[in-house]
Every structure is written in C-alpha cells, then in structure tokens.
Design a protein around this nucleic acid. Structure first.
Lengths: 207, 207
DNA sequence: TTGACAAGTATACTTTTGTATAGTACATTA
DNA sequence: TAATGTACTATACAAAAGTATACTTGTCAA
C-alpha cells in the first residue's frame, strides 16, 4: 500500500475520528472546514486517499466515505452477566453488567454470554477471575463443562447424568462431587455450556 | 426501551444492514426507496426510531444517522501471527495470518499480537490450540511467561535470569528446564510477555 | 527542464437531500 | 368519543453537498 503524505495522513486521521465520534462519515466541506481549506482541496485529499486504497468512496454520494482499512472484522456484542438472579430471563438487562465486542468467529449461536468465574472448583483449567463464554442451552453432553444453577448460585461443573440421578464434578480434586437423586435433580438447572475461556495474565506471576 | 412496531423493526434492520454493507448510513430517500414508500413516510419511521432511542440523528444532516445500540464498544484489530520467522520485523505483514477484533480493554499497549500455541510445555495453564495474547517486549520479570525464540522456533516458557545464565522453564513437569550460560543466552531472544490466553472449548470433552 | 504530483484559492453549477405543507386511513386508548 | 400514534400519498422548497472550471505555487525525480 502506497505511503501517505503528512497532510493525507492528517486527513485520514480526521476522517477516522469523525466517524468514531459522529457515527457517520464527514462531508467534503466538513473536511475542508476542519483544515481551513477550500472544498476542492479537501476533495483532492479524499481522492488521493481513495487512489492509494485507504478509503472507499462512492462518487456523487454525500458522506459516501468509508474506511477501507479499519474495516473492523465482524464483531458481536456479548453481554457480561453479573450475579445471576434465579428469575427466568437470563439475558434480561438487569443481569447484564456490560457488553464486550468479540470477533463473531468466536461466537457460534445466538444466546451467548460471558461470566466472570469466582470459585476454584474447575481449577486448573478454569480459575477465578477468568471470563468464560457460555452458550445458553438446557442440556449438555456427558462430561462437558456447564454453568449450573444450584441453590440460586451459578457454578461451573462437569455434568454426568447417571442412572436415576445427576452428578456435578469439578476438575479440582479438592472439591467432592455433588450427587443428586432424580427428585433433587429437578431443582438443578443447567444454564448453558462453557464454550470458551479467556484469562488475563497481566501482572500475575502464577497464572 | 420502548418496543418497536413490526415496520419500525424492519426499518431499523435495513439501516443496520445498509451501514454494515456500505460503511455509511442511508439517506431518508434510500430508506423510502427500499420500502417503496414516500420520503416523508420514511422520515416518520426514522423519527420514531429516534424518539424510542434506537437511533441517534442530527437534524438537517444528510445521512446523519447512527445506531444508538450496536455502538460496538472500542475495538482493536490484533494480528494473529503464524510461523514466526527469525527475520527482524515481528509484526511484518508476512508474519500476519489474519487479524481479530478484540475489545480495547483487553489490549494494553501498542505492540500486541496473538499466537496459536503448538507445544504442551506450558500445560495445564496453556494448552495446544490456545490463542495467547503477547505484548512485544525484550525483557520480562522473573517467572513471567514469555514467548522465546530458541533456534528459530518460538516457544512459551517462564523466564528466570540466574547468575551468569538464563533458565527457561515450562509448567509441564514432563519438560526439563532449559539452561543457558551467559554466552549461549545471547542467541535467545525474548519476543514478548504473555498477557492473556483464550481457549475454545467447543466440542472438547477434556479442556 | 519538463512533467508529475501535492496542495492550494475562488467561483459556480447541479444534484442530492432533509424537511415542510396538506392531506387520508386505521388502529388503540383514556 | 376524542386524542394519540402509526403509516402512508403527493408536491414543493431551500439548504447541503459533490463536483467542475480555471488558476497558482512549490517540490522532486527522470
């Protein structure tokens, strides 16, 4: 890709900042005004940026600019759930603390959310402070890691359906598996399957 | 947030798709044309969407629309490096296989890249197929996990500077620590510090 | 030294575009 | 039952905005 002159770089930066602040691209005249030059000169710069491949531009279209680079790959906003209340609507806005933009390639399916891990029961694969990505589903295959609602508290466990009951096992040998009879298992609710883990190691010696 | 009528939802969806395809928002008349209605009717719909909080809109401004939701949080494109060639420029485009958009809150610093893990030396904290986030730096604190270039091959190890030498240790006890004398250590290059790990658990029983 | 490119000024022309005016029809709700 | 909101048609106007014409100045490489 051809290098930009200083002035062209400045114009490109202005366009980028205008877009991210306004949500739509600037007009030729707005670019001109920002640099105190005539519309024609601004149009020249935009034409140069297009020629060198930094901008896409549809001729004759007002604000018909778009950034060729920074074409930020496909992104999905994934909600980060805080304390999960036992009330039904899992993805209700009361549960959502924030949302994080993640690459769509990481997010298969619609009902996906993130959860900050608190307990050590899944150590060493999943540790406290990790962020797990969960796909909402009511059943999981034998031995898969699931978010399970036990006594109004969301925990991570491997789920094993046994004859006439349910076993929830943590990877951490310090935790004894929980066994539920058929009747007791009715109170257990599987919220979803853990499909990813993100761990921040910054500032940690032992991760 | 107030609920949308069927028609308003359709208009909102059109605006979203137009934006992601064109890179800039549609005009009132383009919305009208898409639905085969008059500009005035389209303007009514956009006004309703603004009133209900789904769109931001600057009056009198052509294409002055922006999506109030889907305000995709701050995102950085982080390069995913393939085989790391021993040639100097680490982030050179030859090394970059693809880029992934990640939330800026996860990416501190400028020279950050992702690397797909191949060996088992850091198990169980880091496993093959994991994606590690690395911040490019030439030195790391004692015991931190770093990407180290040994014999033209990038590996993950904990780095310990000892008196007159360098020790590279994997978390996996099956791997014996590598020791280098002061002279040998000159060939060892620390590419960066591992600041994050992402693991995809989809379809895996044992993660 | 001649052309190519960058970076401008100044004025004008023509679409594009948001919006206003003036209605119609049909729900739903207080 | 009157008011409010939704969903339109049809025409028109003035401002906004891309672009064209006609120049000027300076730099840099062939």
């Amino acid at each position: 890709m051809k290098p930009l002159t200083e002035r062209q770089q400045a114009v490109l930066t202005f366009v980028e900042e205008f877009c991210s602040y306004q949500g739509y691209p600037p007009t030729v005249r707005e670019v001109a005004a920002a640099f105190g030059i005539q519309p024609r000169a601004a149009a020249d710069h935009l034409a140069a940026l297009k020629r060198k491949g930094y901008l896409r531009r549809d001729p004759g279209v007002s604000r018909g600019l778009s950034l060729a680079l920074k074409s930020v790959g496909p992104v999905v906003e994934v909600p980060v759930l805080g304390r999960i209340a036992a009330g039904q609507p899992l993805l209700a806005s009361e549960n959502v603390e924030e949302t994080l933009p993640l690459p769509s390639s990481w997010v298969r399916g619609d009902e996906v959310f993130l959860l900050k891990v608190t307990g050590e029961s899944m150590a060493p694969v999943i540790l406290p402070e990790d962020l797990v990505m969960v796909r909402s589903q009511a059943r999981v295959a034998r031995g898969e890691i699931a978010v399970v609602l036990v006594d109004d508290e969301a925990t991570l466990k491997r789920v094993y359906e046994e004859a006439g009951g349910l076993v929830l096992k943590g990877d951490n040998p310090d935790f004894t598996p929980l066994r539920f009879s058929g009747e007791e298992a009715a109170d257990i609710q599987i919220l979803g399957k853990v499909v990813g883990v993100y761990r921040n190691l910054e500032g940690k010696r032992h991760g």
